[in-house]
Design a protein around this nucleic acid. Structure first.
Length: 429
RNA sequence: GCGGGAUUCCCCAAGCCUGGUAUGGGGCAGGCCUGCUAAGUCUGUGGUCGAAAGGCCACGGGGGUUCAAAUCCCCCAUCCCGCGCCA
């Protein structure tokens, strides 16, 4: 959510931001918001004046009654004022509601370094790492490899749950666990607090962390309960400190959240339909940071570096892109994606998404910071998040990049101690 | 699921029975005072509207009664204690 003061005082900045993001329908919302805000403030002043008068009358009544005098005239007057107040109150509440909704629709202000672009094609590559492997045999995709090794069962998952679900089996389960253990150990060494969050969250908390469109396209709702399955542990971690004021000395607060992620993938019909690349459920460790506003740009780079370091240790070739205005999403001010090399697709594909959300989430959630114990709050803090490891896609990359001609898979050195010292995933194990 | 207790401004509490301007302490900030420090003393402390003066809102949330609700009534949420059920 943007600061309404920014919109009042610098509407041109906000307008320019919307233009950059290329969603003209939001421009109309901004116009409506601007006019509505003016009207709301006017009515609010009227309402407050009336309330003030009524208060005075009420006090008069109290005083008259105390001295045993008749207060009928004042009571009548108070009743009349009350009628007016009720009418205006309704109007103000309506305006406030609409204003809040409009505010929730407006996207975050972009960082000036975000490249202009219409869609994912406009993302700008800023670096590559590793060497794209060459194979002197006919390579297989991850799903054929996994099927042949008997470490996945898509068909039976389809039978009981539907498309985009999977059973992992044997060494693929171990690999999944190994990726999580490895990542958690690495992040703990860097001072991240390990978190296992609730896997469901109520609507109020959820509205604070994501755009309204996600409720339809992404989130699974529990029938009959005010609960949604989390789409990433970013969400419960961001909402964790909802309504709180954090001491400056505790910042930056670095969390590493481990959870399954549940996603409807409503807009992805026909995309990546095979295998475990795009699924309704996957495990992920997410890095999350609460920090002072002046630190977020630096910490964004640090988050990216931490995510890169993990991929380097996994020996996966990747590139980093600066996500452009058309592809960045509502909440982020700036976003890097890391894309790992996927041999069977002959392309880099997203495995990490690393965002600086500035104060956009914090304002919605009411998370502020204070200089020290007892001091009044200073302002909203900044939030950042980055994938550390999404096991599904990382396993796709590992299977495809590390395949041998006989269909076995080499286990990267960094993971071996987390999976019984296996050097290879082999059918005969 | 049942019963009891709780939720008050940054923190801790009082006020609720018996409706009438939201009280005290702590912390923090600033002023005054003292060679310095400590102590003392005064003011302030959240949100919001306003250029300011000055208002308004906020007693877990939502309704209701009343001229007037922290206080009375109803619904809901969360936490604590006990009982039940349960891996």
């Amino acid at each position: 959510m943007l600061d309404i003061k920014l919109i009042r005082e610098n509407p041109d900045l906000v307008r320019a931001n919307l233009e950059k993001r290329g969603n003209p329908e939001n421009m109309l919302l901004l116009d409506e918001l601007f006019a509505l805000d003016k009207q709301w403030r006017m009515n609010l002043t009227r309402l407050n004046d009336l309330r003030h008068v009524r208060k005075t009358v009420t006090i008069e009544i109290a005083q008259l009654k105390k001295t045993g005098q008749d207060a009928l005239g004042q009571v009548e007057r108070a009743k009349e004022i009350d009628v007016q107040i009720t009418t205006i109150e309704k109007q103000v509440a309506q305006e406030e509601n609409r204003e809040h909704n409009l505010l929730l629709c407006l996207p975050n202000m972009l960082d000036p370094t975000v490249p202009l672009g219409e869609d994912a094609h406009g993302n700008v590559q800023i670096k590559t790492w590793g060497t794209i492997p060459t194979f002197n045999f006919q390579i297989k995709n991850h799903i054929d490899l996994a099927n042949a090794l008997g470490i996945v069962d898509m068909e039976r998952a389809g039978k009981i749950s539907g498309a985009r679900f999977f059973f992992l089996k044997n060494q693929l389960v171990l690999l999944d666990l190994a990726l999580m253990s490895f990542t958690m150990h690495e992040l703990s060494k860097k001072g991240y607090v390990a978190i296992e969050p609730p896997f469901m969250m109520n609507k109020t908390a959820y509205e604070g962390v994501t755009s309204l469109a996600d409720f339809a396209d992404v989130l699974y709702k529990i029938e009959g309960e005010d609960l949604y399955m989390i789409a990433t542990s970013e969400h419960p971690m961001a909402a964790m400190y909802m309504g709180e004021v954090i001491k400056e000395q505790d910042l930056p607060l670095k969390l590493a959240g481990l959870s399954p992620c549940f996603r409807k993938e409503a807009g992805a019909h026909g995309k990546d339909t095979r295998g475990i690349f795009r699924t309704h459920q996957f495990n992920k460790i997410e890095q999350f940071i609460f920090c002072k506003p002046e630190d977020s740009v630096r910490l964004h780079e640090e988050l990216l570096a931490a995510a890169e370091e993990l991929l380097k240790k996994l020996e996966l070739p990747y590139r980093v892109v600066n996500v452009c205005t058309g592809d960045i999403g509502t909440v982020a001010a700036k976003k890097y994606d890391i894309e790992a090399w996927m041999p069977a697709q002959n392309d880099y594909r997203e495995v990490v998404s690393c965002s600086n959300c500035t104060d956009y989430q914090a304002r919605r959630l009411g998370i502020r910071y204070r200089e020290k114990e007892g001091a009044p709050p200073k302002g909203f803090l900044h939030t950042l998040n980055s994938t550390a490891v999404a096991t599904g896609r990382t396993m796709v990359a590992l299977l495809e990049n590390n395949q041998n001609e006989d269909g076995t898979i080499n286990v990267p050195k960094a993971l071996r101690k987390y999976m019984s010292d296996f050097e290879k995933i082999d059918k005969n194990q």
